[in-house]
């Protein structure tokens, strides 16, 4: 494991920790209004306060959980769907493959963001878990495509043929012979999906189609934008949440590079 991967894992672990303990270590109630209105960062309010005197540091801490939960739930759900569709298509081939590939390509080409915005705004209550489920439905296609290609290259290998010749059932060959060889691809697909889901959830909160009753980084940005934080020069209102998103995204991307380099040695650094 190289430095980049370790750094990525470290940042991810840090945010996971905040997601768990954020609510307890937050110095204020994130929704509680205070007297200090729109004050810049200070000892009492590390990230400053909002228009209504809410503590932004507490909002970021408490909001971490929503972000991480959606990322994790979507990552698991969408990865499961992509394995189901991609590996089945690649392994079975023929008409089943044609149909499943067509399905995942349709999902890839249709622009996800406007579609999700429509679905989310039509739902009567757009809470965190529901949003995670909707995002997963659009996020699986890329993984399925990559997994299908990889499975097709494994399908005719000798060890798979051997298992087939010894009379193993199809599902057993898939689970015990093919899947272990796809682990690197699945892992990088999982990380990619988490990035996608986190970005999408924050975006949905920012445009205001997701319930604003729970805090996440996108909600903070929504309030900052709708109260014209920019025009008033209140940079502290939108900088911390954005930096957290970028940090988390970078951490996940670094982990993905690590997985890629593990799977494809040609990408590793040339030693001088």
């Amino acid at each position: 494991m190289n430095f980049k991967t370790k750094l990525g894992l470290g940042i991810l672990a840090f945010f996971a920790l905040i997601a768990v303990i954020g609510e307890w270590i937050a110095p204020y109630d994130p929704s509680e209004m205070g007297d200090e209105i729109l004050s810049p960062p200070s000892g009492a309010h590390w990230f400053g306060t909002t228009m209504t005197g809410q503590d932004i540091f507490s909002q970021v801490l408490v909001g971490t959980r929503g972000v991480m939960v959606v990322g994790l739930v979507c990552g698991v759900l969408a990865t499961f769907l992509s394995i189901l569709v991609g590996v089945t298509a690649g392994f079975l081939g023929g008409a089943a493959d044609e149909a499943l590939s067509m399905l995942s390509n349709v999902f890839l080409v249709i622009p996800a963001l406007p579609l999700i915005i429509i679905v989310a705004s039509m739902l009567p209550s757009a809470d965190t878990v529901l949003i995670a489920a909707v995002i997963s439905l659009t996020a699986w296609a890329w993984g399925a495509r990559v997994l299908r290609a990889q499975t097709m290259s494994l399908r005719r290998r000798d060890f798979v043929e051997a298992a087939r010749a010894s009379g193993e059932r199809t599902w057993r060959i898939i689970v015990f012979e093919v899947l272990p060889n796809l682990m690197a691809v699945i892992a990088s697909g999982f990380v990619g999906t988490v990035i996608f889901a986190v970005m999408l959830q924050i975006t949905l909160s920012f445009v205001g189609v997701v319930s604003l009753s729970t805090w996440n980084w996108g909600t903070i940005l929504f309030w900052a934008q709708s109260n014209q934080a920019l025009g008033q020069g209140a940079w502290w209102w939108f900088v911390p949440a954005g930096l957290c998103i970028a940090l988390l995204g970078t951490a996940l991307a670094l982990i993905n590079f690590g997985i890629d380099e593990y799977a494809n040695p040609r990408l590793r650094k040339v030693r001088a």
Binding site: T203, L221, F238, I245, A246, G249, T250
Partner: peptide, 15 residues
């Protein structure tokens, strides 16, 4: 560039 692409489009716009 990885860091830049991890930033949501809209936030970069705000900055």
């Amino acid at each position: 560039t990885t860091f830049l692409s991890s930033i949501p489009y809209f936030w970069l716009g705000l900055i």
